[in-house]
Design a protein around this nucleic acid. Structure first.
Length: 609
RNA sequence: GGAGUCGUAGUUCAGUUUGGUUAGAACGCCUGACUGUCACUCAGGAGGUCGCGGGUUCGAGUCCCGUCGAUUCCGCCA
């Protein structure tokens, strides 16, 4: 079809273009027919320009008055100054006095109105994603995403990094997340896996001597989803040879500086603070604390203060190994919040769901009185010490939990987050980056007795902790598990506003150490060879010390866009049940396809037809 | 796997507590009027398997059971 191509976009014409003859192409965003005088808001990615069709132009008016929303049209005419201007849009001082008008394509009435403040529900928007993506806010998200992509690639290109593509079809390794599997037609009964991350490949690239590797790549994990977790997601994946942890930090902090400066115009302060895993757990009850929270104190361990009391709840908790009594202070009065009995009861129910018998509290009322169910169990000296250690004053309340250390700390952390979220005690204007370092190498599950890698099997233990491997050989059961769990690794996360946005480590590059780790997690020689033989073989031929990090690209872009969920920074996201509502995947396949693969379906699911 | 919220017109919702006449509103859509609108305005109109299945009842949008879907959280996942 022939049509006049645009001379300008719908976002650029200004008063300085007056009297120019232009052509615009775009979608009808809105038609306002005043009866003879007709206005059309023409929309494209760049903006909206008003088209004026005067009553004298009968032929054009006849065609134009028939168009509906989302018709695609081409309009030619003269840029003129408006009689009444619209200060709300950049092109609001001008309009197009139409001379040519052509409908390029008609459009059915859309299932929802395309407007910035969309009213449609999320599933409808996902079903008609192409319409949802016409909205300015979603297009803006994708443009920010594109900008970040470009900044990151340029940043690393400038620093000698090599961009290498790694396979999407790879070997399945059952460790970590569940793999997405792809059946092989040629090798019937065998499967590829989609990468959970290019971890093994990037380490092998270090063995190959590539020295500095970067890739912005898709990763796949077949696990249950969340607002910030999609089955396929994007990582900024990088690896460097001959580096220590600090070298990795130094090579990534300036990247965030550039992104924040270019996208938000914000000058980030570097270096980012670093806190150990143990420190953040003991102070914030989380391995990804949100440092923007105000009105709530850090967690205080009051075990020493209350250890000699006869109060049976505290006594029992402290009698256990690793038992503690701890609390967190909430400054309610200065934040204009009234902590009523109902609120305390709500929090009590909340901690009961977490497995506690109840929630202790000491409330210092604004009138100077003290309210606490614990009061009769705490003598005056202890009460004074608690008040002192929390630096508590009138208008504040201390919430207290007792029990196993990690559970108490993480639960107090959860309470902190909940109160902060419920009462909006989060400074949304800030971006709080934080490196969390010295993660444990292993995770010990007391119930099953299993030892597993906390990060992954190739994470390097700290050199000064290596002796614990030998000590653990003489122990068994819980003692062994706890000693192994105490081994710290050269492993780190980057946290931003309470979100984990990156994770990385220095890797093991020596076979003897790798063997110790495999032994601890119970991988036999044979299993090691079957699962990671290719990597271990590679490491025989001169593996350099190396380490790296992977950033959650979608989460970073979401935070830049001011969003909690990552769905709206992904062009075609999936639902919480990993389905795509637009193209209806996953779907059944033809019997012939299954036959080719040698696959028989043995379970008739609810969705099969 | 578990818990919460939601599902009623094309869309967003009200109606469900306490079962009872013809299931309402706004926006959108259609028809007509309107020469400076930009949430145009005004008049009129069409539009509903109340997610689906079963049960209780004289009677179910409303009560009960099951099921499907969306979403948030826990488990899971780095």
């Amino acid at each position: 079809m022939s049509f006049n191509t645009r001379t300008h976009t719908c976002g650029e014409l200004k008063l300085s273009n007056a009297n120019e003859v232009v052509t615009l192409n775009g979608w009808v965003a809105k038609k306002r027919d005043l009866g003879g005088l007709l206005f059309i808001d023409l929309r494209d990615r760049y903006g909206i320009t008003q088209i004026k069709i005067a009553p004298e132009q009968k032929d054009i008016y006849e065609v134009a008055s028939k168009v509906g929303n989302e018709f695609v049209i081409s309009v030619g005419g003269v840029v003129i100054e408006r009689e009444s201007k619209n200060k709300n849009i950049p092109t609001g001082e001008i309009e197009i006095d139409v001379q040519k008008f052509q409908i390029l394509n008609e459009a059915s009435v859309t299932p929802f109105v395309i407007e910035d403040e969309v009213k449609a529900s999320e599933d409808l928007r996902l079903q008609y994603r192409y319409l949802d993506l016409r909205r300015h806010s979603l297009q803006r998200n994708l443009m920010i995403r594109s900008d970040v992509y470009r900044i990151v690639r340029n940043f690393y290109a400038d620093r000698n990094f090599v961009e290498v593509e790694t396979p999407i079809l790879m070997k399945s390794t059952p460790e970590g997340a569940r793999d997405y599997l792809v059946p092989s037609r040629v090798h019937k009964g065998k499967f590829y896996a989609l990468p959970q991350s290019p971890q093994t490949y990037k380490q092998i690239l270090m063995v190959s001597g590539l020295d500095r590797y970067i890739q912005i790549c898709k990763c796949f994990r077949d696990e249950d989803l969340r607002a910030d977790r999609q089955p396929e997601f994007t990582q900024i994946d990088l690896e460097m040879s001959f580096v220590h942890q600090q070298d990795v930090f130094n090579m990534t902090e300036p990247m965030f500086k550039e992104i924040w400066k270019e996208i938000l115009g914000i000058e980030l302060q570097t270096p980012f603070p670093q806190m150990s895993y143990d420190f953040v757990l003991e102070n914030y009850g989380s391995d990804k604390p949100d440092l923007r929270i105000f009105g709530l104190s850090k967690i205080v361990n009051i075990s020493e203060i209350v250890k000699d009391l006869e109060f049976v709840v505290f006594k029992n908790a402290l009698a256990e190994k690793n038992g503690i009594v701890g609390g967190v202070k909430f400054s309610f009065a200065e934040n204009n919040i009234d902590v009523t009995r109902k609120i305390i009861d709500g929090l009590t129910d909340f901690v009961k769901k977490l497995g506690f018998g109840g929630l202790g509290y000491i409330k210092y009322n604004s009138d100077g009185s003290v309210q606490s169910p614990l009061q009769k169990f705490l003598n005056e000296e202890v009460q004074a010490k608690i008040k002192n250690v929390f630096e508590a004053k009138d208008g504040e309340i201390i919430f207290i939990l007792s029990g196993a250390k990690k559970k108490v700390l993480t639960s107090l952390g959860t309470i902190r987050n909940k109160i902060a979220a419920d009462y909006k005690l989060i400074d949304k204007s800030r971006y709080e980056f934080l490196w969390v370092t010295d993660f444990p190498l292993f995770h010990y599950d007391e119930e099953s007795g299993e030892i597993a890698a906390e990060h992954h099997m190739f994470t390097s233990p700290k050199a000064e902790e290596m002796y614990k491997f030998d000590e653990a050989k003489n122990l068994s059961g819980k003692e062994r598990g706890e000693l192994l769990q105490s081994i710290k690794a050269d492993c780190y996360d980057l946290v931003l506003n309470g979100n984990e946005i990156a994770s990385g480590s220095i890797r093991i590059h020596r076979q003897d150490i790798q063997k110790k780790v495999f032994d601890v997690v119970g991988l036999t020689e044979q299993e090691q060879q079957e699962k990671f033989g290719f990597l271990l073989n590679a490491f025989q031929y001169g593996a350099p010390p190396h380490g790296g990090v992977a950033f959650g690209f979608d989460r970073i872009v979401a935070i830049l866009c001011g969003l909690d969920a990552i769905r709206d920074v992904i062009a075609f996201p999936k639902t919480v049940s990993a389905a795509s509502l637009m193209d209806e995947s996953p779907s059944n396949v033809a019997q012939q396809q299954l036959d080719d693969l040698g696959i028989a379906i043995t379970i008739q699911t609810k969705n099969s037809d």
